[in-house]
Design a protein around this nucleic acid. Structure first.
Length: 547
RNA sequence: GGCGGCGUAGCUCAGAGGUAGAGCAAGCGGCUCAUAAUCGCUGUGUCGGUGGUUCGAGUCCACCCGCCGCUACCA
């Protein structure tokens, strides 16, 4: 089970939208499969070569590598604190990534899917370099605005080709750019188009917006696309590239970044001391791969990356690309809200990690854009997570402590209601597991919460605080059953709120980890001394007057 | 402009041809073990609009309105 997660640019940490859109769903999915006993490899890293990094580096007067090296440790801290459990989070700046990129490139070339072509590109004679489209400005041929960029006019929104600009000028120096011929490798997507289309048409279980968009895109016809460009920052060309002036060119970031999933898998294998271990995820036909990305990334993961894989060799194609829509924040518009431009880590000053994860998980943008407010996050945490699940654990542990000295009792004879509750928990677990496999994470979480409600209902019906005065065996049986139910829900909640489930597993005295333990209710043996329980989650209070 | 997604209860969302659903919020009641927690009951809707197909349409078709995204050298 390969869990591939979109590569963030190395120029800043993640906002809640990124977390909810990709990292949290990927982590929930990965944690589920680890518990279920599947071999999971969850990888990502920072994208070192995107334009935003060079922009930031230029602003600070440092090299792009400095930016990447600054942010990568901070990403690691961010994942640790949020409980995002990567097996490897690397960067695209490694020697390994360069080698793997070259392998893919050579595979495409050897199979006849690569071609060198010469095109005219704008060149800044003062800066002595070729200009990316967005470094060219000029008058829009469509609406006449004089500040159009080479790739798009912000005034009228039209997509442009820089050569169509009237009075073009270089954004770097203001010089009038001239067109010069330059030679680049193109990937012949036109030759791969029918294979990609056939493959896409055979996909099952993909989200509507993903498969429809990808198929529509391919049916319009794929254009051959340059995979190199005239830049000094990026993955260099292989020595056998066969282009003129190879030292002035780099591999295009769109082509190289997605290869990171493969290079990260290989890097992970090397670090494990078993350099061939990556093959289990990329060559075994029974291995599955899921790519967690935002909807803006659909073309690169559902169309181009499969084309690159098909054209270069025999590696596994994506099993699914469960792309999410976007999360937006009403708070971002209302300046008083806590949500204004805050990074995910800022939220951890107010929310414990599990609480933030829960609030986001109940609002994942799986099918629609979701507009969140801080109040909605707080409501989810306080009214659902704390009130229903956290309080359930606390009330049962407290009763067990008070009446039974904190020891799991020997149950008496089961009644129907006892059997029914445990059957209900098992059913919710099974349904949740099925939903998790389909990447229906919101609905899966609802199953877990329904389980907690069922236990609360059971307790109200059995009223162990009353029977404690009259019937010790009945009380023991009720608490025994409730504890077994909670043990089952510990697993059910584990992918979503891993910190709390780890605490619970500890309180129950589980001797083996939840991971690999199987997606099932675990029995807690009578006589077990329970750990001292404290409330699992604290209620959240928004600051009255956030800065 | 073209393409795709979405528009269902106050809020967040399920439902995809056969008497409109869940959670939260609201109202009423029960309980008092528990983090003023919990459990039960109740109400709630021109299912974005218009027209059509059908015995029957949130559900299929056409057109329209609104929001979001993509439109190919940022990934």
């Amino acid at each position: 089970m390969l869990v591939a997660v979109a590569w963030p640019y190395a120029n800043g940490l993640s906002h809640l939208g990124h977390i909810a859109g990709a990292y949290l769903p990927a982590d929930i999915f990965a944690r589920y499969h680890r518990i279920a006993g599947n071999r999971v490899l969850m990888v990502s890293g920072t994208d070192a070569h995107g334009t935003p990094i060079t922009v930031l580096a230029d602003q600070e007067g440092v090299t792009p590598a400095v930016i990447v090296e600054r942010f990568n440790p901070r990403f690691h801290e961010q994942w640790d604190r949020l409980g995002i459990s990567f097996d490897l989070f690397t960067t695209t700046m490694t020697d390994n990534h360069r080698e793997v990129t070259w392998e893919i490139l050579r595979g495409l070339r050897d199979n006849g899917y690569l071609e060198a072509r010469t095109t005219d590109q704008f060149y800044d004679p003062v800066a002595a370099r070729f200009l990316p489209d967005r470094y060219v400005e000029g008058t829009c041929p469509n609406c006449g605005a004089d500040n159009a960029r080479g790739d798009q006019c912000d005034t009228c929104g039209k997509t442009l080709d820089p050569v169509d600009l009237v009075d073009p000028r270089s954004k770097l120096t203001g010089a009038t750019p001239e067109q010069r011929p330059t030679e680049h490798h193109f990937i012949l997507l036109s030759k791969l188009q029918e294979d990609v289309r056939t493959w896409l048409e055979g996909r099952e279980g993909w989200r509507n917006h993903v498969i429809n968009w990808a198929l529509g895109f391919v049916k319009e016809g794929l254009h051959d696309r340059a995979i190199t460009r005239d830049l000094s920052w990026g993955v260099p060309l292989p020595p056998d590239a066969g282009l003129d002036a190879p030292n002035d060119k780099r591999i295009y970031v769109w082509f190289e970044a997605v290869i990171g999933y493969l290079s990260a898998s290989k890097e992970w294998a090397q670090r494990q001391g078993d350099p061939e271990a990556w093959r289990a995820w990329w060559e075994d036909p029974s291995a599955e791969s899921y790519y967690f990305v935002g909807k803006d990334n659909i073309p690169f993961h559902a169309v181009y990356w499969p084309a690159q894989l098909m054209g270069s060799g025999e590696l596994n194609l994506p099993t699914n690309v469960p792309a999410n829509q976007y999360v937006t924040f009403k708070g971002a518009k209302a300046s008083k809200s806590f949500g204004v431009g805050r990074a995910a880590l800022d939220y951890l000053e107010i929310f414990e990690p599990d609480a933030l994860r829960y609030g986001l998980a109940t609002n994942l943008p799986e099918y629609n854009d979701v507009d969140l407010t801080d109040e909605e996050l707080v409501r989810r945490v306080n009214d659902e997570l704390v009130a229903t699940w956290g309080n359930l654990v606390n009330r049962v542990f407290a009763m067990t402590s008070k009446n039974l000295g904190g020891v799991v009792p020997e149950p008496g004879t089961f009644e129907d209601r006892d059997r029914e509750l445990l059957a209900t928990i098992d059913a919710h677990l099974a349904e949740e597991g099925a939903l998790l496999e389909q990447v229906e994470l919101r609905r899966a979480l609802k199953e877990a919460m329904s389980g907690a409600q069922a236990v609360n209902g059971y307790l109200n019906a059995m009223a162990p605080w009353k029977t404690a005065k009259t019937d010790a065996e009945r009380t023991a049986t009720t608490l025994y059953v409730a504890l077994q139910a909670i043990a089952g829900l510990t697993t059910a909640f584990a992918p979503f709120v891993p910190f709390a489930s780890a605490s619970l597993a500890d309180w129950f005295g589980f001797t083996t980890p939840l991971e690999g333990g199987g997606w099932a209710r675990r029995e807690v043996a009578p006589g077990t001394q329970l750990g001292a329980a404290a409330p699992l989650f604290a209620k959240v209070e928004l600051p009255d007057n956030p800065a």
